[in-house]
Write a protein that binds this DNA or RNA. Structure first.
Length: 537
DNA sequence: AAAGCTGACAACCGCCCAGAT
DNA sequence: CATCTGGGCGGTTGTCAGCTT
């Protein structure tokens, strides 16, 4: 952008220094009815021919271009050339700041739907946006910045992109806003808010699948958790299809997923999150070292449950502050506290505070993240208060209640979804063989899930669930650890907080304001090996 | 100052999918 | 149902500019 391409001498369209005589350079293409179709850069002469053709015949029927104009280009090449370079009203040059922000917002909502994003950016092409985005990803990855700005506001999209009518929490009512503010869960709510109107469904099921079958939750790729859309095959991106399939389909049949694709998707997704980690291509090894055999009940539960229901999928979402909405409408490239939080798991070597035999990098990362969260909460003035949720005058209680109902459904073992969720939970209980490495055992996405789920809960529901929190369970320890991060870490630091029960009590008391509540609640459900962690740093 | 290196950008190709016929 | 066509997207490649040596 902002750079004139010399790859195509005709970039300026119809410059006179690129005669058709250049055509001979690129006749490496396929033949079409005896004529060899040219590939490679377009010349200005070719452009002129194409422009002339379109003027006469209009767009479409691109395969006829060659016949009618003698242009030795395939129809698709003509279409792309026209769409990306020759059609009028194309906006050339660098993206404006407004466009950049819009792209970020759109990507947060749509994922890699470049064409649809382009529809929101007049004069811009999908390819241009894609290139911009990919460049941005690389740049941000290098800079160690989160992919999405913390102040990103996921406004509901107009038109048919709102597949669900539920308004976003951005426009929520005051009551829920207060709850959310009190719980500090703005970002997660934002995530779900976006999900609610997203034209696609975050690919939780397949993420789960891919995680379970290819990378392992603890593989470095997952340190950054996963974004919702990147690189996933279309068949797993379509929300309706899968929501219905998983929710109303044959309950015992895990939907198919393309493991080869999801494997690559996993990496892409990880990469796309703007967090740096080494690429570990050996997915299979990760998978098999998950801690249980690949065909174990646990694994099948994880896979099938996560694949069947968005609830499972939600587990895979990022407990992200990257969706923070400040309401200022400005993407601060480096809000220090936020950046530190988002990147904390990756920012550097993580001290191993957890003596659990099964504990390794990922757990520590998670703990570190929770710790960082606690820190960040102190450092940042008040994300919740400045968040998307709170900056609006009102929060949509109906939407929140919907979430809550849905979540209750997931928790209800008698409900289909509850059963699914239960299977996930059960599958993650410490009954399974604990793997040798938590990095590989830890279903990170599960943590995410409940972060979001938690955000759905109203106070009463939260308490109810909290009451189910069995501190006698070894994994409850972890939960309390999570709690502790924001609610009782201080006591720990003061040398009085090693007692898990005490910590839990303290955490429970503080849970209404603890932003790590969800982490705690999810922990006992989803962190089998983690549960063995006797103490918390 | 020149050569080499690296990042950013532009553009194309191939695969895949959905809709139309 | 098969084929065709247009379209979407990921991946790759080529080029340039800036920086380093």
């Amino acid at each position: 952008m902002g750079r004139s391409s010399t790859t195509e001498s005709e970039d300026g369209v119809l410059s006179t220094d690129s005669p058709l005589s250049n055509d001979g350079d690129n006749f490496s293409g396929s033949s079409n009815g005896g004529a060899v179709l040219k590939k490679g850069p377009w010349t200005s002469a070719e452009d002129a021919i194409l422009v002339d053709y379109v003027k006469k015949h209009g767009e479409g029927n691109w395969n006829a271009v060659q016949k009618h104009s003698g242009l030795l280009r395939c129809g698709k090449s003509c279409r792309l050339r026209w769409a990306n370079h020759l059609r009028p009203n194309l906006k050339k040059g660098a993206f404006t700041s407004e466009e950049e922000r819009l792209i970020i917002e759109l990507h947060a909502k749509m994922g890699n739907k470049w064409a649809r994003m382009a529809a929101h950016l007049p004069g811009r092409t999908d390819n241009e946006i894609k290139n911009y985005w990919n460049t941005r990803i690389k740049r941000r990855q290098r800079a160690g910045l989160p992919l999405y700005p913390p102040d990103l506001c996921l406004h509901p999209l107009p038109e048919n992109q709102q597949q669900h009518s539920s308004p976003g929490i951005c426009a929520g009512d005051k009551g829920c806003r207060e709850i959310l503010e009190s719980t500090g869960y703005e970002t997660h709510d934002l995530m779900f808010d976006s999900f609610n109107f997203l034209p696609y469904t975050p690919q939780f099921p397949d993420i789960s699948a891919s995680v379970s079958t290819s990378n392992g939750f603890g593989s470095p790729q997952f340190y950054s958790f996963v974004p919702q859309t990147i690189g996933l095959p279309k068949h797993v991106q379509e929300p309706d299809e899968h929501m219905s399939d998983y929710g109303g389909g044959t309950p015992n049949e895990a939907p198919p997923f393309d493991r080869t694709q999801t494997a690559s998707c996993t990496n892409k997704m990880s990469e796309s999150f703007g967090l740096c980690f080494p690429y570990v291509p050996d997915h299979t090894k990760k998978l098999l070292s998950f801690g249980v055999s690949q065909d174990s009940q646990f694994m099948s539960n994880v896979i099938s449950s996560a694949s069947k229901h968005s609830a499972g999928a939600q587990e895979l979402e990022l407990p992200s502050l990257q969706y923070q909405e400040t309401g200022l409408g400005v993407w601060d490239p480096a809000p220090e506290s936020l950046v530190s939080f988002v990147q904390s798991p990756l920012a550097g070597p993580l001290p191993s505070h957890c003596p659990s035999s099964g504990s390794s990098g990922l757990l520590e990362d998670l703990l570190y993240e929770a710790k960082a969260l606690s820190k960040s909460e102190n450092q940042s003035s008040d994300w919740a208060a400045s968040s998307n949720i709170s900056h609006g005058d009102k929060t949509d209680s109906s939407a929140l209640q919907t979430y809550s109902r849905e979540f209750k459904g997931y928790l209800d073992p008698s409900s289909p979804s509850g059963n699914s969720m239960g299977s996930i939970f059960n599958g993650c209980t410490p009954t399974g063989t604990i793997g040798s490495s938590l990095e590989e055992d830890m279903p990170v996405p599960h943590v995410k899930t409940e972060v979001y789920d938690r955000s759905w809960l109203l106070d009463g529901q939260r308490e109810k669930i909290l009451d189910h929190f069995d501190c006698s369970r070894p994994d409850a320890m972890l939960g309390s650890c999570w709690f502790e991060q924001s609610a009782a870490s201080h006591s720990k630091q003061q040398g009085s907080g090693t007692d898990a029960v005490a910590a839990r009590t303290e955490l429970k008391n503080a849970s209404t304001s603890s932003s790590t509540w969800a982490l705690g609640s999810c922990s006992w459900n989803n962190m089998p090996a983690v549960c063995q962690m006797p103490d918390f740093p």
